[in-house]
């Protein structure tokens, strides 16, 4: 159990967001609390990434508000892994060192080595990050996020462009991280991945929150027609 102030639960209160005239999120109200991973699901364009970025503080609602249990310094307690993470132009180890410094943590070679080992990149510490494979880059992005020692880790479709082996590598890290007590909030449209990782499902369609419930309930007894169609593999537009 962490002995520091917690930003959980994160509360969305009637949050609306639009880009120009296009509504991305429409009056979304929900609460993300501590516990097993929360997985955001829904078709493309449903607002998953926007909701994640808003929870991280990267976007500001047009109306409504996002609150954290403890507002102070919450950005320091959160980390984000993007679908296509940017690899800084330096070695894998120096990418980790950069993240440690950004988080105000000591630049300890032992910590860097441990983080790289934890994502299976110990042997590639001195390899330029941009020369790593897609799966390796995604694992390095995870290690870089974990270098912040986050309370909440946001993941935006972290395996979207990876092959099954690389996907398993990333999922194993996510599962271990969740077991270590880090709150995982992840967007995916991969049903199998959601079944493997989720403790709770948030289902979005067309910018609206349609369901928020335990994963076991969602997969066996979804409440809405859209969710049933989505689970059946039908096109939800």
């Amino acid at each position: 159990m962490r002995d520091r102030p917690t930003s959980l639960p994160i509360r969305f209160d009637a949050v609306t967001y639009s880009a120009g005239t296009t509504a991305i999120l429409r009056e979304v109200s929900l609460s993300i609390g501590a516990g097993p991973p929360t997985v955001l699901m829904g078709p493309n364009g449903s607002g998953k990434t926007t909701l994640l970025k808003m929870a991280m503080g990267l976007l500001t609602p047009v109306s409504g508000r996002v609150d954290y249990a403890d507002q102070k310094d919450q950005a320091r307690r959160h980390a984000f892994v993007f679908q296509k993470p940017v690899m800084l132009r330096r070695t894998a180890a120096r990418n980790i060192a950069f993240a440690l410094k950004a988080a105000g943590r000591a630049n300890d070679p032992a910590v860097i080595a441990r983080l790289l080992e934890s994502v299976g990149l110990g042997a590639l510490a001195d390899r330029p990050a941009r020369r790593l494979s897609g799966g390796e880059q995604q694992r390095l992005a995870l290690a870089r996020a974990l270098a912040r020692d986050p309370e909440v880790l946001f993941l935006d479709e972290p395996t979207a462009s990876l092959d099954p082996a690389a996907t398993k590598g990333v999922e194993d890290i996510i599962a271990r991280t969740a077991q270590a007590g880090v709150k995982i909030v992840m967007a995916t449209h991969d049903l199998g991945q959601a079944r493997r990782l989720a403790g709770e499902i948030v289902f979005l369609a067309n910018g609206r929150l349609l369901e928020q419930m335990p994963a076991s309930t969602f997969f066996t007894n979804p409440a809405t027609t859209e969710a049933r169609r989505f689970l059946a593999g039908e096109l939800v537009i």
Partner: peptide
Amino acid sequence: DELVAMDLSRTSRVATLLWD
């Protein structure tokens, strides 16, 4: 997005961009 998510100061952002 990456640098903002890392909560870097404006000076650190400039330094990072110039270096990269």
